[in-house]
Design a protein around this nucleic acid. Structure first.
Lengths: 234, 234
DNA sequence: GTCTATAGTTCGATAGAC
DNA sequence: GTCTATCGAACTATAGAC
């Protein structure tokens, strides 16, 4: 699509074209479903160039996954540090906003392909295969520990173990919301819309903050099963 | 593995052997990463039999996905109906227990391959491709609406729109927990374990119940962004 | 129902000209 | 850096003997 006549600011080198195309094709088809030929076609380049710039399909995939993770986590860290900069302790809702905003906003950015990355991230972050676990850990473990530490500073009565669980359960909410599966609309006859970034973030923020605070309440975290009679089929 | 000498109760016909093997191979490799040859080898049957019993790889995948969904949702429904049977209104935690228990327990059932199904379910439920959305809707829309209705009966001050969001955000927590990615252990130097079913359910129950109740609080659900100065890089 | 054999594609990757 | 051409290996699916 991008020809030599386009403005300088829109010019992209071949490597970026391939990364953008790969991001879209991997997001739509997964690693195994995507083909290097389809990526080359999407990028408008010769398929041999993929192996020239990236050694293999595997390395291309890892490059795509790593490309945006730095920007996401830099922004999360900047927002979080700004909250603590004045010396006080921010509200839990503010901390969660700092965590959620970069990915939720990216998931609504169709102009620069951000929505493709978030769909890919959902796939990798929820995968149980060895490659998914390795890549998720490499790119997102450090920021995870920073936010767990921050949660511990803000919420009294929370053990580190419970903070990790609260963080992960919160992440799972954010993961689903950044991908826009359209399921909310399906279940509500179109009443629920997921295109308003501020509303999506506000709901997730409220939900997760209350959930984490509840985990700190020792009365609530007993493992006793509530009284239930499992009725047999009548 | 299962030979002719095994007890009658352990005998399985070829079709079930293929479904069990396909469940494991699809869970480990996804739809495109799994091959019919690998499934046949895992099942110990000739690869041509897969196309004899199921017409195509696609239909086999759908059969695998549909096989356990009926049992899961029947049990959810039975547990839920038992809670309302006495005429009273159950606690929100009890309703969530009924929803979470079938999948969380299935995810820890390695003896009958249930853990393979839950990993597959995570993949399909979070997928944005057309097949994933279609299959998720076909198997899980009906039970979703039943539980949204139940949430509306239990929690005062909740609109249907917010109940759907609360349900979906709760589901996302349950989805992550049923797959056992091991990430909690990674982030806590092994301190967090996810093998105790009752503890996993209790934490999720507490977290989600508090989150849904918070959504009903009109003061909390404003879409106003909290005061934050996004610090530029120093 | 179960097997062998194979048709017909498509894949990732590379060699080598320009 | 970019292209054409192609290799060797895999894949799904089926035909046909038993």
């Amino acid at each position: 699509m991008a020809q030599a006549q386009t403005a300088v600011s829109e010019r992209q080198d071949t490597q970026q074209l391939i990364l953008d195309a790969a991001e879209a094709v991997f997001a739509n088809n997964g690693f195994d479903g995507a083909t290097t030929r389809a990526i080359a076609d999407e990028a408008g380049v010769n398929s041999a160039l993929i192996h020239y710039y990236f050694r293999s399909k595997e390395r291309l995939f890892e490059a795509v996954f790593a490309r945006r993770s730095g920007a996401i986590n830099d922004r999360r860290r900047r927002l979080k540090d700004a909250l603590f900069a004045s010396g006080g302790t921010p509200a839990l809702e503010e901390l969660l906003d700092a965590f959620l905003r970069p990915t939720i906003e990216l998931g609504r950015d169709e102009e620069h392909g951000g929505h493709n990355y978030t769909r890919l991230l959902v796939h990798v972050a929820t995968g149980t295969d060895e490659r998914s676990r390795r890549m998720t850990g490499q790119q997102y473990d450090a920021i995870a520990i920073e936010f767990v530490d921050a949660i511990l500073k803000i919420v009294p009565g929370l053990t580190r173990e419970l903070a990790v669980w609260g963080y992960l359960q919160g992440v799972s909410v954010g993961v689903i919301l950044m991908a826009r599966t359209g399921r909310a609309a399906d279940l509500s006859a179109g009443e629920c819309r997921d295109d308003d970034v501020e509303e999506v973030i506000a709901r997730a923020r409220t939900f997760i903050a209350a959930g984490i605070r509840a985990l700190a309440d020792p009365e609530k975290t007993t493992t006793k099963k509530p009284n239930q009679k499992e009725e047999t089929t009548t």
